[in-house]
Simulated assay, not measured.
Amino acid sequence: MRRPTDFVMMGFLTTHFSIRTSFTFRHNKCCCLVIPRRCVRCCLNLSTQESKKTLEIFSTWLSWFQGDFDNFEQVVEERNQKIFPREGGGHEHIHCAIQPLFCKPDGHVLLFAKYYFNGNPDIVFRFRVYEAFPSVSPYHPEEMVLEMKILRFYEEAASRLKQINFDIFQLDWNSDHMYEYLVGCEVYWKYNTSTHQSVGEGPHFIGFMKGGGCSVYSPETKDIIHVKDDLILTPNHLWVNDRGFDNCQNYIYGNQRGIHYQMKRVQSGDALDWTLKATHRPKPDIAKAIEELDRQWKVSHQPSC
């Protein structure tokens, strides 16, 4: 997927998402993101220099955040060091695919995120809608950040989405029972112009949750999960340190050493394009070898009765 082009024109934010199913055009001084069978205007007034700067940052975040990201290189390095997932302190092979959906009338942008294991688009383990918009820091009201609400699909919509192989544009977006807002789990993104010490790139966004995390009811475990998350976003990386704990602070998911899933941007034609939905092809030998290593390690560490 090619990187999108972002620009500010005529006092309004216009973001051109270069995906097959959408394009943008200006109409009545508004930006319209067109998606099959629907068009939503997002009109944002840029009357001050400060608001122009805010929307330029928002536009940058949107262009960096969409696309495909994968941590296969991290997994290869860990397995070479005999480091395995979960109790072994390593990471599972995770691919994240994020695509823009549409703008709401209030200027908020909705995006669809899908996560799957082992570079296989058929092994989806999480899917969410994110609602992003300029906001203020929960700690410093005078500081501008970007706020991202996390929306979880209701059971009926989730089942429907699985049936249509996660073709998000086939869902009925007029339904009032599509998804629920996970209150308190908002992620705030702060823009930094300096080079990030760990990632090694220049300007970047740091993602954080107020208080470091939130607590939500899990339909899977039928109990409360305490979530902690911090993230790093650059033009070429999405690092995610998402962990879940039960009421006794036992790990449910995530890296047990608190190390980010270090996902790098993947584009068609590069070394990891076998992980992409549109171009998915047979795994290379090294990927098959790692899956077998992980299987053997998991079997050997099964708890005994």
Score class of each variant (00 low, 15 high):
G89D: 02
R281G: 03
E147Y: 00
V8G: 00
S18R: 10
I123W: 02
Q267F: 08
I57L: 09
I98R: 02
D223A: 15
S135T: 09
G89M: 04
V266Q: 02
D167V: 05
L272H: 11
S63V: 08
F65S: 11
K162C: 13
Y188R: 00
N236P: 00
V216P: 01
R128F: 09
P282N: 11
S218M: 04
E291T: 12
Y139P: 00
D229P: 07
K277V: 12
E155P: 01
L276H: 12
A158D: 06
Y181W: 09
F17N: 12
T275V: 15
V216C: 09
T21A: 07
F102A: 02
S215Y: 00
S18Q: 11
E201Y: 02
H91W: 01
S194L: 11
M144F: 06
L231G: 00
F23K: 08
I224G: 00
R38A: 05
E155Q: 11
D172K: 03
Q49S: 07
K149G: 07
V76R: 11
E292H: 07
F102L: 08
S47W: 03
E87Y: 05
L62R: 10
H237M: 07
I259N: 09
E131G: 12
M148F: 04
R281Q: 13
Y181D: 15
F65E: 02
R38V: 05
I225M: 07
I290M: 00
Q267Y: 10
I168C: 01
D229A: 15
I57S: 01
T14F: 05
F153K: 03
S18A: 12
S175R: 14
W173A: 04
H280Q: 13
I57C: 00
L13I: 09
G244P: 03
W239T: 06
F112T: 01
C43M: 13
R26Q: 08
L276W: 05
F127H: 14
K210G: 01
